[in-house]
Every structure is written in structure tokens, then in C-alpha cells.
């Protein structure tokens, strides 16, 4: 299946092609989870604070589906 991934803030330094506003395409086996996306890009688990899948917050063991859009964030805050 194919999913779409966006990396933000400090996570971009682990993936040189993750430029601002760029959505990465990723082929994953059926049944893959959010955690597998993090592993694919070699993102340290303790650096990833938040995963939004199709606009909804999900835990790392959330099972993905074809065409899902995933946004990964380190801890961020402001206001």
C-alpha cells in the first residue's frame, strides 16, 4: 500500500529530502503501523512526540491504510 508522509521541525534533519511543504510517498506492506514509518526514516522513537494520521492523533501502533496521510512532529509548543 501507499502512504504519504510529512515531517516537521527538527525531524526533517533525519531525512534530507523532507523539505518544507514536501509530501513523501512511501510503499509499505499491508498491516504496517505508524511505528514502521518512523523506522523506515530511522527517526529515533524518543524524538517523535506526535503522529497525526488524516488529521487525527494516533499512537505509534496504529495500523495504517492505503492512501493515509501521516504528519510526524517532535515536541512543539507556542501560542
Amino acid at each position: 500500500m501507499q502512504v504519504y508522509v510529512r515531517l516537521f521541525a527538527t525531524l526533517r534533519r533525519f531525512v534530507p529530502e523532507a523539505k518544507i511543504g514536501v509530501t513523501l510517498s512511501l510503499e509499505l506492506p499491508e498491516g504496517a503501523r505508524v511505528r514502521d514509518v518512523m523506522a523506515h526514516y530511522r527517526l529515533p522513537e524518543d524524538e517523535v512526540k506526535l503522529a497525526y494520521v488524516n488529521g487525527i492523533y494516533q499512537e505509534p501502533d496504529f495500523v495504517l491504510h492505503d492512501q493515509d496521510e501521516i504528519g510526524l512532529f517532535p515536541p512543539v509548543g507556542g501560542g
Binding site: 516537521f8 521541525a9 497525526y52 504528519g71 512543539v76 509548543g77
Partner: peptide, 19 residues
């Protein structure tokens, strides 16, 4: 960290992702 590097505007993308 997040605020010192990107400022409060670091929130734009996460609010956008969250709809």
C-alpha cells in the same frame, strides 16, 4: 528546542495537520 529554534510559529504546521 522547538521555541528557541522555530519560535511560536512552529505551531502552524501542527494545527494545519490537525485540521
Amino acid at each position: 528546542g522547538g521555541l528557541n529554534t522555530y519560535g511560536t510559529a512552529v505551531l502552524v504546521n501542527i494545527l494545519n495537520e490537525a485540521g
